[in-house]
Design a protein around this nucleic acid. Sequence first.
DNA 1: AGAATGGATAGGCATTGCCTATAGGACTAG
DNA 2: CTAGTCCTATAGGCAATGCCTATCCATTCT
Lengths: 301, 301
Amino acid sequence: MEFHQLRYFCAIADSGGFSRAARLTHVSQPSLSQQIHKLEEELGAQLFDRIGRTVRLTELGRAFLPRARALLSDLEAARSAVAESSTSITGSVCVGVIPTIAPYFLPPLLATFSRRYPQARVTVVEEITPLLLERMRSGAIDVAVVAVPLQARGHEFQTFPLIEEKLYAALPKRHALAKRKSITLGELHDEPFLLLRDGHCFRETAVAACKRARVQPKIIFESGQFSSILSMVCAGLGVSIIPAMALEKRNGCQFVPLEDGRATRAIGAVTLNGRSLSRVQQAFLTHLTAKIASKPAHPAQ
Amino acid sequence: MEFHQLRYFCAIADSGGFSRAARLTHVSQPSLSQQIHKLEEELGAQLFDRIGRTVRLTELGRAFLPRARALLSDLEAARSAVAESSTSITGSVCVGVIPTIAPYFLPPLLATFSRRYPQARVTVVEEITPLLLERMRSGAIDVAVVAVPLQARGHEFQTFPLIEEKLYAALPKRHALAKRKSITLGELHDEPFLLLRDGHCFRETAVAACKRARVQPKIIFESGQFSSILSMVCAGLGVSIIPAMALEKRNGCQFVPLEDGRATRAIGAVTLNGRSLSRVQQAFLTHLTAKIASKPAHPAQ
DNA sequence: AGAATGGATAGGCATTGCCTATAGGACTAG
DNA sequence: CTAGTCCTATAGGCAATGCCTATCCATTCT
């Protein structure tokens, strides 16, 4: 049983004849005859009585007609549902973001996105990069905003660069170097360091910067968030390295740009390669990249 | 979009892979690949994400899946509804019958039929033959029980002979010939005749019998039913011709068989040629012919 | 690294759906 | 009653297509 057979059946039932139906469906009359015969054979019963030169539904055909109609209209409904869902911006986006980006970067973007696409439902997952990537692989997360480049195999994910921000040394206000215009990590080689816990990729970024400056940081405290670290810095317990977006006005804290030109953090949006994005998801990604382009990459302190 | 594509789609979604689905559906993996590609192309969107060597539904595919399932199960439902309705004896039969047969012949048959097929709904239409035939042509009546043979073109209707009954002269009890074992119409040529109204085919039967006996009946009364006529005969107003099944015990009336060997009425079941009968309708027809075979064609007076 | 697994692609074959032409019935008009 | 017409069924041919095998390519497991 095929859809076109059902179409022909309905057309014949509606128009009351094979020839009339043939004109309606733009199919030759013999084709209709043939397909209805096939259908009748498959069902093991006649759908039409051919009496004289008129055609009339059998009782069975009369019973079958509404079902055939329902099938056809459901087919149409399914087809147009697909068409609709590929034009309308509806549905949900699940965006993953690492903790060192989440509080500074995402909120304003989410606000504008929700205002622009009220139908869209956005959920945010805040995890460290490897967990985000794993959830991307499993399909739970659609887009991730993380530090780039990724370590993962080059072609497993697709990266959309967003911004690159400078790194700053965070010093207690009364620190000897706190008034400097810029600073090198070498100048801090004796200071106690406050860094993020292992697992946070920004820790690697900071450690890498230290390594470039041939500094082996003395880590005396590890935390999961910058605000804790900054509080410690204010209290004069040590120094830290902070990305531009995490700078916040604090009484006891001073931020000095690192001289190292490579001391930056690049942030990008990442999607699983080969994964098709729905319209909302695509829109979200576009929203990210577009909005960022018009945003200052290095906001003043 | 075709049913087999939907089947493949569901199989792949269920089994989680083309190869697995290929084993399930007994179709080669390339065929599945091909058909899904076609489907995706027609819909203008991907249904699956092929990531690495795993396959996962896209959001759209996830939305499409229940619709595809519904279509397939509705198809199955339609198919089995047809199968069921061609095995189960359910539904309605509309049987037409002429007034000169209806009261005598049908009631016991309807009773046994209804007892045997309680699901069946039988409706009876009582009309004169030409109207019954017209309603057969329009499909309103499924089977008609009428006097045969029909005048109509030989192949328009199909006839199933049921019984052939003798004709009787109905005479007032005190009529001179009332005690005879048999009688010819010639012997009644001067009598006033009470006959059925024009349109009733038994009138033609009776008139034909008279014509054979070279009698021109003097018709003094016409009615639509035998019981009225018999009452008149009882009252001594005239004589009549009555088929065997219409004989009823009456005080003032005597029935004498006609000698004319051809003075009979044949009754048959008739269906429109080319018209397919449902199971109930077929069962009713069978019931008619079968039950009749075991019935005495000429019940004693 | 090599083997195994899974999907995509290419090419060939058989099926099939549609076409035109025509047969054959049945209704209609002269 | 016959010619004409209107309808469905059939026959035959052609192009499209669904399925197959063989193979490729990427991924994943050992």
